[in-house]
Design a protein around this nucleic acid. Structure first.
Lengths: 254, 254
DNA sequence: CCCTGGCGTTCAATGATACTGAACAGCTTC
DNA sequence: GAAGCTGTTCAGTATCATTGAACGCCAGGG
């Protein structure tokens, strides 16, 4: 459990529950949402009407959808992250040069959030997209970030989210994680060998600011069948390193 | 006023008022928000805590910020628009070939929302960004969309938002607007001669689906000094037309 | 060293208000 | 034509969001 004590504005939570349900199914009607969330129809209707009046939800033919107004909030939040502008072209370049999937992630609330992701020619079609949130302990990106956070912060995060097994390779033990993070700190590179998704390997590295604080991480990912030992352990890490190098320079001098 | 009758979930509205205030100033504290919005401190605090617990707001050192979670909602809403995927590369191409600013917009709640925007080499630095909302009557993009909407829908929109003057060239008269829209329908191209921003001219065209419904519009914009008659009236419209052609094909066959 | 002024946070009371479920209206379908 | 599905409206009630004052904290200055 996280916390969720008493003080909370309940109506706001139900509003977001409704928005999320709308988001997941990409549009729905009042009755469908009401039964899915087990709220009374009138409650759902009231909220949808409020959200529509504020232009956060769009209604078309008795079907409500999430509005593009959220793009304003989300894109702005993303653009404000100092890492975004500089990491983006490098991520695009990595994707193009390797042909695989590349992305940039920042930490929020103990989880990773994708700011951007680029597909190379042969990139696998996995579930990464802008805004997608992932567990930090089960991804190269995440482990790279964790490795550069203070130890007590890592404990906080593990306390909050646990170490759920995503595949049979996921690290689910605190000590094992600590050892792994030490190795990442040592080499500067984090590996993910089918720890998040079966058949997917990835290589990541953290971007740190001038004060040593973590700004985020970048990675390349591809199918295990194509990422054999040499490519996985040497070639891709080199590509990531060179990108990090460029990003670091641009972060500190801008 | 638009409408805003009685039925509305007030707490949800104040929550969004707070989010918007946070968004505008890119991070703020409780007291600052409370005095800016003239809500009691405790109310603001309650809402921020609720939003943070739901990971929509991030707190760092007594400063609250809009979280990247909104990106998930916004990016998804954008990606679902059938026009986005196909218009995006064309908009990028236009920006590169003309060196100016290009963008793609959809209609929501009687206003235009930018889904994407690309800057060419010499593009002006104006206030367009993903999620930015604009009045339809004062932009090439907007007039292109209005021209392809049913007449009663246009009336609804004008009733709701009025025809506020954005510059001294903005069309503020309903009949004048109707005549302009007829001309746009005729030629397929909409012009904006400093009607939205002084010194800015733009050229736009609508994208329509197979049933004749408007999916959105694309445009190119640049400073009046660089968009002299020939370029403004012939060259850029040709570029827009060719992009629309490509987009139309990809929309109907996919 | 204490005291003031700023902050974010907590608390308990209360009155507004969000929720509720049944009834309504418009639609398609059988 | 009626049954079943929508989205929508309504009025009562108990919930719960709101409130302002009090608290704890930190920095600065007397």
């Amino acid at each position: 459990m996280t916390d969720s004590g008493t003080p909370a504005v309940k109506s706001v939570e139900t509003a977001f529950r409704i928005i999320e349900a709308l988001h997941e199914r990409g549009g729905a009607g009042v009755t469908e949402l009401a039964s899915a969330l087990s709220f009374p129809k009138s409650t759902v209707h009231n909220h949808l009407q409020t959200l529509e009046r504020n232009e956060y939800v769009v209604k078309a033919d008795d079907t409500y959808r999430v509005g593009c107004r959220f793009l304003e909030l989300g894109a702005h939040a993303r653009d404000r992250r100092p890492i975004y502008e500089v990491a983006r072209p490098e991520v695009d370049r990595i994707a193009e040069e390797t042909g695989e999937l590349s992305g940039v992630v920042v930490e929020e609330h103990g989880r990773g959030v994708f700011l951007h992701r680029a597909k190379g020619e042969r990139a696998v079609h996995v579930d990464t997209y802008a805004g997608k949130r992932i567990y930090l302990h089960g991804a190269a990106l995440g482990k790279a970030i964790l490795a550069h956070l203070p130890e007590e912060r890592v404990d906080e995060i593990v306390d909050r989210h646990g170490l759920p097994a995503l595949t049979e390779n996921t690290i689910t033990d605190r000590e094992e994680l600590a050892a792994e993070l030490a190795a990442v700190r040592e080499s500067g590179i984090a590996f993910d060998d089918e720890e998040r998704l079966e058949g997917l390997r990835s290589v990541g590295a953290a971007i740190t600011g001038s004060n040593g604080e973590v700004l985020g991480a970048i990675s390349v990912a591809g199918p295990t069948t194509r990422l054999r030992e040499d490519r996985f352990r040497e070639e891709l890490p080199a590509a990531v390193r060179s990108a990090v190098n460029v990003i670091d320079l641009n972060v500190t001098y801008s």
